[in-house]
Write a protein that binds this DNA or RNA. Structure first.
Length: 262
DNA sequence: ATGGTTGCTTAGCAA
């Protein structure tokens, strides 16, 4: 099974690149974040022609997540299972074959101390509660997406610049570590313990040419799945500016890909 | 040098 995750930063702006990447990589399961489109505007037909079913939680302008799969997803769930009404589309889960797939777009948090920051920490806590309530670390499960957290400074090119930001603050990191401690393995880190490989570079400040990157896009797997992981890579090429036209512009995130033995 | 880019929506927000 080939599994991938990518924050596309608008599925409509990334249409050409997304289809080209799907054609090259042919993942069995593909978690997408920041669709920035409603369910109605989601390109179901085009993706179906490419061979993919889609479980979508869309939203106008912001957020939006989807799970694409070559086999039809079951048990689709579009919200965290708690009493909070939440207008932000940041979660979708589905069963694909025997695997529980959770696709997340964790809030960025903007600035430490802001309302958005409080929402981020609360959202991470809600996610952890949801996972603990509905799943066991002994079942095959993968939690993928843009977590907006760098787990430690191995995932930060310039730690001094990012220290105590919403990405690196100890409270945000504690949220991610809570998931790891429950029983999720960071499959990319396991294959690349040296770190210093990134999945996100801000559009501003020439961050990509300067490689001022962060690894904040994760594939987290329970032990039954993680022990079958044979490779995990980040497709840095996809972050480069392309030719002219619609496909010229990259997302600010690169896709992360993991291969699991069947 | 207190900015810089991109996307959505159309002046301002979010990242």
């Amino acid at each position: 099974m080939i599994l991938a995750t990518w924050n596309v930063n608008s599925i409509r702006s990334r249409r050409e690149r997304l289809l080209a990447w799907l054609d090259r990589a042919r993942p069995d399961v593909f978690c997408l974040q920041e669709l920035k489109c409603t369910d109605e505007a989601f390109p179901y037909d085009e993706l179906a022609r490419a061979g993919y079913h889609a479980a979508v939680s869309g939203q106008k302008t912001y957020n939006g997540v989807a799970i694409l799969a070559q086999s039809e997803p079951g048990d689709v769930c579009r919200r965290l299972d708690d009493d909070e009404a939440d207008a932000q589309a940041r979660f979708v889960s589905a069963r694909v074959g025997a695997v529980a797939v959770l696709c997340v777009y964790v809030p960025n948090g903007q600035v430490v101390g802001s309302e958005a920051w409080a929402y981020k920490l609360a959202w991470l806590a809600r996610l952890a509660k949801h996972v603990r309530k509905h799943y066991s670390p002994g079942e095959p499960l993968v939690l993928c997406g843009d977590t907006n957290v760098a787990r430690d400074d191995l995932d930060v090119d310039r730690p001094a610049e990012w220290a105590d930001t919403v990405i690196c603050h100890p409270d945000a990191r504690a949220g991610l570590h809570g998931l790891l401690d429950w029983g999720l393995a960071d499959v990319f880190r396991d294959k690349h313990p040296e770190g210093k490989t990134y999945s996100f570079w801000d559009y501003r400040n020439l961050d990509f040419p300067r490689n001022n990157g962060l690894r904040i896009d994760h594939i987290l797997a329970t032990a039954p799945l993680a022990r079958r992981c044979v490779s995990a890579e980040i497709d840095r090429e996809e972050r480069k500016v392309g030719q002219g036209g619609e496909g010229g512009k990259p997302s600010d995130h690169a896709p992360v890909v993991a291969v699991f033995q069947d």
